[in-house]
Nucleic acid binder design. Structure first.
Lengths: 180, 180
DNA sequence: GCGCCGATGATAGTAATTATCACTTGAGAA
DNA sequence: TTCTCAAGTGATAATTACTATCATCGGCGC
């Protein structure tokens, strides 16, 4: 298996294509198309460094100095919900530790924050030697599977009840649409 | 490729083995063996739910009610540094967003928090169908490669200078030993 | 053009770390 | 065993990244 760093220069065309259909996608997702949302998705598509909300906000403010950081936070979460963005740091709420040093991977319920260890037979072998990303010295790796656990999937299918995460109980409503 | 949830009942023996060599490993890492550290690694090895610092602290306090939450935070990071624990949430500092919806993966510099997109040819195909973890409804997945970027590796090899992350500049010193 | 409900800005509030610092203690030296 | 001292700890203040609240604004369906 071969690893290849994604080139930044591929991005311009991709960003243009995404911007072209953004308004339609918003409406399809039941969202109003606002100048803030346009500016935020544009800034996100223009960045290849997986920015934080603060960085997006700074970029957006170059043209729209009035935009609030709170709006940027809210909008980025909204974009993830309708599938227009991904959060790289799935469970960034709080640090989670693992005593298991054997090679293994994780299934994560994005709603209740449950994490289970899983083993994937053959994956180590298949990836061996493929992790030498140019410009980096790798020392570990792990596969993360984003999911809803059966309990949470049941809740979502039903009426939608409160999640158990710390920050943001309202996440309940948000996660609803994320897993297509 | 086949996925298998790691059974909790395997853990007791594993935990015992790890505890048996913990003191020696601490000394090898240049760390004092304190009752707090013993209690914390024991609590971590006794848990299969990838606990937060607060949960570890609660467990530890059942026997050592005086232990400080700050010590638990510090110790967990220390354990990661000497390789006795793993942090599941590699970049939990702050939320990072990605506008790239194409299937891809990430190389992460744990020191300067740089993230690059990478593609791994054949990985999608190899894993197809293998992600059905019993008890979960998966909707996404991604491989994370933990690394030092060349810049940071250079710094570490040299004298060890300040990192760029937000929280915790002292992390500089800590990361030093992690990538074996 | 009108009106409504979602969206936004400003700001206060919250939670998870992290820093600080005085005091304690593990562990090698004597 | 006792001594010494740097590493480790507890208590708590400080920081930071979000999240809630709420008055106001403005897309968008009519």
């Amino acid at each position: 298996m071969e690893l290849r760093i994604v080139k930044d220069n591929r991005r311009a065309a991709y960003a243009r294509a995404r911007m072209a259909e953004f308004a339609a996608r918003c409406r399809r997702g039941g969202l109003a198309v606002t100048p803030q949302r346009l500016a935020i998705i544009e800034a996100l598509l223009g960045a290849t460094d997986h920015p934080r909300a603060e960085a997006i906000c700074a970029e957006v403010r170059r043209r729209h100095p009035h935009v609030s950081l709170a709006t940027v936070h809210r909008t980025l979460e909204t974009l993830c919900r309708i599938g227009e963005a991904r959060k790289v740091t799935t469970l960034h709420d709080s640090a989670r530790y693992d005593g298991n040093l054997e090679p293994h991977h994780h299934v994560v319920c994005v709603r209740c924050r449950r994490i289970r260890d899983v083993e994937i037979a053959g994956l180590e072998r298949a990836l061996a030697g493929a992790l030498a990303a140019p410009g980096f010295k790798p020392f570990g790796w792990s596969l993360e599977i984003q999911a809803l656990c059966d309990d949470c999937a049941g809740l979502d299918a039903g009426a939608g009840r409160a999640p158990k995460s710390r920050r943001a109980r309202k996440r309940a409503a948000q996660v609803q649409a994320n897993p297509a």
